[in-house]
Design a protein around this nucleic acid. Structure first.
Lengths: 192, 192
DNA sequence: TCAATTATGGACTGATGTGTCAAAAATTGA
DNA sequence: TCAATTTTTGACACATCAGTCCATAATTGA
């Protein structure tokens, strides 16, 4: 029934996500979005509501994608390999991709804790990640790959902190080589 | 000669810095600035040029202040104490102050590497800090406080990365207690 | 006292930004 | 074929924003 949409909603959301990711919320105009999404103004508002609602939806899509990418890298190989892989995954060789950094980190920088909707979303993913990292740390300790004196939860929090450090470094122009060697350095600091 | 300024230029710059620090460049309007600085529009433009020039000057003031604070904390006590102190200095007990995070990190998030003036300023301070941290690390190794197998420059880069991680965590709402225990954790990872 | 100079206050300009309106177009079901 | 519904298009309304203009005020040096 009724006239069908002429554009691919998911593809348009993907484009919006890229723009918000690269430029943040405030520096992105609805016209930037409209142009990147390749649709008209009313189509944008009709399909996504207002700018903030679109940002939230783009943020959700971002977190889903990056969350599963992180978990996939973390689970690859031995615990130590998984953790190094998780960190090294923040250092893609492609310059443009690497310099985007992390949209989650960007949202913290831009909004701090002022937006409850963003806070909640970050908290959910953060806790999910920390659980999985802690689990791999325990596994690594059982295998003798990781220092047994380390508290798994605290160490997992450390790994997440290192991730944000690497992501900011990436956005600040660090090379893939530098980031990867830092990923290895961090991982080595957890060994016996 | 001529009519003297009615406001304190340094105090006004300080206020502007606080606003940019809290809200970033794009989200700060010249009216936000004018109000926080307690001066009229023409006074603002007359004394500081345009918005971007004011941001640059505020950024310079910020970097000078925070740079000397970092160096002072780093040089306090033994090398290990100095490093932990440097990191713990990012976790003030006052909530409002802590949640500001770091304006330098904020500028990376907001602008990436797109602004050469900002890039240069960050590079200068970053290299200064890394030199001083590396020097303390060598000192710590000589004293046997820090693991001698660590490369001082790489370790110093790691400490700076940890700093940005902590600063983002602070802006994201982490407690002073959490941050301080993370500062200790990071420092301990460098011990023999 | 007066000329020169700089600061201030308030109005103003032109651009940009977000969101809406209304008419036309496309589709489905009767 | 036509009524109902939704999308699209382009124009539009209204707010905000950065920066400027101009008249007035305050100060210094002659």
């Amino acid at each position: 029934m009724a006239r069908p949409r002429e554009f691919d909603r998911d593809a348009a959301l993907e484009r919006a996500m890229q723009v918000f990711w690269a430029k943040g919320f405030a520096s992105t105009s609805t016209d930037d979005l409209r142009e990147a999404m390749g649709i008209g103004r009313q189509s944008l508002y009709g399909a996504f509501g207002d700018k903030r609602t679109l940002y939230l939806e783009a943020f959700d899509a971002y977190l889903r994608r990056i969350g599963s990418a992180h978990l996939s890298r973390l689970s690859y190989g031995s615990p130590v390999e998984g953790i190094e892989n998780l960190l090294a995954g923040l250092a893609p060789e492609d310059d443009r991709e690497r310099e985007l950094g992390c949209m989650g980190v960007g949202s913290v920088s831009e909004f701090g804790t002022t937006d409850p909707d963003l806070n909640l979303r970050r908290k959910v993913l953060g806790e999910l990640l920390i659980r999985h990292v802690a689990r791999r740390i325990v596994e690594g300790q059982e295998r003798g790959e990781l220092a047994s004196k380390l508290d798994p939860d605290e160490t997992a929090a450390f790994v997440l902190m290192a991730m944000t450090g690497l992501q900011i470094a990436a956005r600040g122009g660090a090379s893939a080589k530098e980031l990867k060697s830092m990923a290895r350095f961090v991982t080595c600091r957890l060994m016996p």
